[in-house]
Design a protein around this nucleic acid. Structure first.
Lengths: 198, 198
DNA sequence: CCTATTTTATAATTCTGAGTATATAACGCT
DNA sequence: AGCGTTATATACTCAGAATTATAAAATAGG
C-alpha cells in the first residue's frame, strides 16, 4: 500500500562501494554518491541514515566478497594458495578494475586516523580475517607436510604475510599501478618457497 | 629598524613536523599548530604563506633527517645495514618517540589521495631515496661478495624491501605499536639471510 | 622620541560539505 | 478514488576549518 523502492539497495551499495574505493570516505562528497548511485541524497539518507551508514554498508559488502576469497581460497588452501593470492593481487585480470585503487579495506585501514569507532571495528575484523586465513593455510601446509614449523613460527609468518600484502597494496595505491606490487609478490613468493620442505 | 622575529623558524618547523607526524595534515588544525609551535596563526601565515607551506617545510625537514639515515647508513652499507634498519624500525629506542606514529613520509604517502601535487612530488622523491638506497646497499653487498644477483634481481629486491618496509609501517600506524612490525621485520631479515651466499 | 615592523589577541570572513526542509510527483494497495 | 509511502528537485541550514582583518602592544634603529 505504498510506493515501493524503485532502486535495488544492493546495487546502490555496490555503486557506492566503488566510489568510496576510488576516492575514499572523506573525498567522496554526497554529490559524487548521488552521481554514482543514480539516486538523490534524500533517498540515501532515508535508506542508510547518513553518509557513514552507507559507508559501513559498503564495507560490509566488500567484506562479504573478501570473505569468500580468504575463507574459501586461502584458509582452505596451503602455501600454493597463499602464493596464488599474491600473484593474483599483482596481476588483476581487468586493468580497469577498481582493484587498481588498492583494496577498499586496506585503503580504509590506511585512513584509520580519520575513522570512527565503528569503521575501526570493521577494519579490525578484516585484519583478523586475513591473519587467521593465513594461519589456517600455514597450518594446512604443515599438516600436509609442505613445511615444518611450530605454532610460534606460523603466527610470525602470518603476520609477515599480512604486512607484505599491505605493503604491496600501499604501493599500488600510491603508484596507481601494479608493477611494484609484482616485484613484492614475486620475492614474497620466493620467500614462501624457502619455507617448503626440501 | 623593526622588531625582529622572536621565534626561531627551525624550532617552529620542528614542532609543526611532530604535530603533523602524529595527526596528519588534515587532522592538524591551525589551533593545534599554534599550540605546538607556541606562536600565533598570523605569524605562521607570515612566515610560511599558508598551512601547506608549513607542511612542506616540515616534510623537507623530515626528509633532511631521513636522508642522513638512508644515504649515510643504508646506501653506504650492505645486507647487514638493511637488516639493521628493519630491526631499528621495529624496536625504537624511545617508546614515546613519534616514530610510533609510523613515519611521517609513509603516513603522508598513505594519505596521498588527499595531497596536492607539491606534496606528491615530495613523496615521490622520498620513495626514490629509499629505493635507491636499497639498490646501493644491494650493489655493495654484491661487490663485497655477500650475495650473488644480477641487476634485475637487485631492482626487484629493492622494490620488495620498500614494500616490506611500508607494510610494516602501515601495521604500526594501524595498531599503534610495533609488535606486528617486529614479526614482519624478523621474517624479512630471514629472507635477507637467504640472499647471502652460503 | 618616532617610525616601521612584528608580535598578540580577538573577531570577521569565506568556503566546503553534511544534513534538513519543502513542495510535488509517482505508485501500490484497499 | 484516496491514503500512505517513496521518489525528484531545489534550496536552506549549520558546523568546522582556513584565511584575513583590525586594533593594540612590543622593540630595534634613526
Amino acid at each position: 500500500m505504498a510506493r515501493p523502492r524503485t532502486f535495488d539497495e544492493d546495487t546502490v551499495v555496490d555503486a557506492a562501494m566503488v566510489a568510496f574505493w576510488r576516492t575514499g570516505f572523506d573525498d567522496t562528497p554526497i554529490n559524487a554518491l548521488e552521481d554514482a548511485t543514480g539516486i538523490k541524497r534524500i533517498s540515501l539518507y532515508n535508506a542508510f541514515g547518513d553518509k557513514e551508514g552507507l559507508f559501513l554498508a559498503a564495507l560490509d559488502r566488500y567484506h562479504l566478497g573478501a570473505r569468500d576469497v580468504y575463507e574459501g581460497m586461502v584458509a582452505q588452501g596451503n602455501l600454493d594458495a597463499i602464493q596464488n593470492l599474491f600473484t593474483a593481487m599483482s596481476a588483476p585480470a581487468d586493468p580497469d578494475a577498481p582493484a587498481h585503487a588498492g583494496c577498499l579495506m586496506v585503503n580504509t585501514v590506511l585512513d584509520v586516523r580519520r575513522a570512527s569507532d565503528e569503521v575501526k571495528a570493521r577494519i579490525t575484523g578484516y585484519r583478523e580475517l586475513l591473519r587467521t586465513s593465513f594461519v589456517s593455510a600455514l597450518q594446512n601446509a604443515r599438516s600436509e607436510g609442505q613445511m615444518i614449523a611450530d605454532d610460534d613460527v606460523i603466527e610470525q609468518r602470518a603476520t609477515y604475510l599480512l604486512g607484505l600484502l599491505w605493503g604491496a597494496l600501499a604501493l599500488i595505491r600510491v603508484e596507481g599501478k601494479t608493477t611494484a606490487a609484482k616485484d613484492v609478490a614475486d620475492v614474497g613468493n620466493l620467500t614462501i618457497d624457502g619455507w617448503r620442505r626440501r
